[in-house]
Computed example of a mutant assay.
Amino acid sequence: MNLSTANLGDWAGLPFFAQDLPAIATQLQNDTRNILPPSDQVFAALERTPLAKVRVVILGQDPYPTPGHAHGLSFSVDPHVKPLPRSLNNIYKEMISDIGSAPMTGDLRFWADQGVLLLNTVFTVPAGEANGHTALGWQRLAHQVLTATSAKPCAFVLWGKQAQSLAPHITSPKDGTNPENGHLMIETAHPSPLSVRRGFFGSKPFSRINTWLSNRGEPPINWTDT
């Protein structure tokens, strides 16, 4: 697997790429399994949403392990994928409840183009083996990305305990007296079928993010592409 960092822009300055990526790339090169997503899409989330444009971070776990699904952005799938992965289907159910509609396909790249960083904690996965690359060291990149995006007020969406465990890497600015001057933190249950009814449904993340952005004088996110 040949991992190119040529299109990473400001993200390329993160220490991970000099200190950690060479060893991970070697491990991937020696892994004879089918690795997802394709090598040219591993860093797609960072390539699609430059650091300076990040307004929202939605933190996922690892890519979908089904061939043809993952394309480098958390929760997103290629537009032809039917049926939708169950977590994404539940996200759309909550979106319909929250703001009245949802996208026509599972392709969320139009979110990324508006400053929504769809960040996975782990960037690769062997086909059919969810969490199969959790020991490679990808998490250090996620930690550094969270710290970098914390430099200015940002909305962070942490669904589930695994995502919430990374909250310490989200640093200042934080202002409890004036939330618009600090981060918006949305921490609820994960949208997977196992936990979705433990606080994900009814959490209204999409309208909450847009209210926060509007209060800051920023344009809201078009969540539905309509």
Rank of each mutant, 00 (worst) to 15 (best):
D40Y: 14
L141A: 10
T211H: 08
F206E: 06
R55S: 10
D98N: 00
A127W: 07
G72C: 13
K174R: 14
P193H: 10
I221N: 00
N215H: 15
W138P: 12
P103L: 06
D175A: 08
T49S: 04
P50D: 08
G128W: 07
G115E: 06
W11K: 13
P103M: 11
R216D: 13
G137W: 04
N215I: 00
W11Q: 04
V196A: 15
R208G: 03
L8W: 10
S195L: 08
G217E: 02
R86Q: 08
K93G: 06
A127C: 04
T124E: 00
A189K: 02
H183P: 01
S87V: 03
T224I: 14
D20E: 15
G176L: 05
W111H: 03
P79Y: 10
F43W: 13
V125S: 06
P79F: 06
T5G: 11
W159G: 13
C154Y: 08
A112H: 00
N131K: 10
R140D: 15
G176K: 11
T105H: 04
S203Y: 09
G60A: 10
N7L: 12
N178R: 15
L28I: 05
V122D: 15
D225K: 04
N120F: 11
G182Y: 07
A142V: 12
L59R: 07
L8P: 07
P193V: 07
D20W: 05
T5D: 13
L158N: 12
E180W: 10
P38S: 10
K82Y: 05
M104G: 09
L73K: 00
F201R: 02
T105K: 01
M95F: 01
W111D: 02
N7C: 11
A135K: 12
A18C: 02
S101C: 04
D225E: 09
G100E: 03
L158K: 02
H80F: 03
A102Y: 06
N215C: 09
V196I: 13
A52G: 08
K53F: 08
A135I: 00
G72W: 13
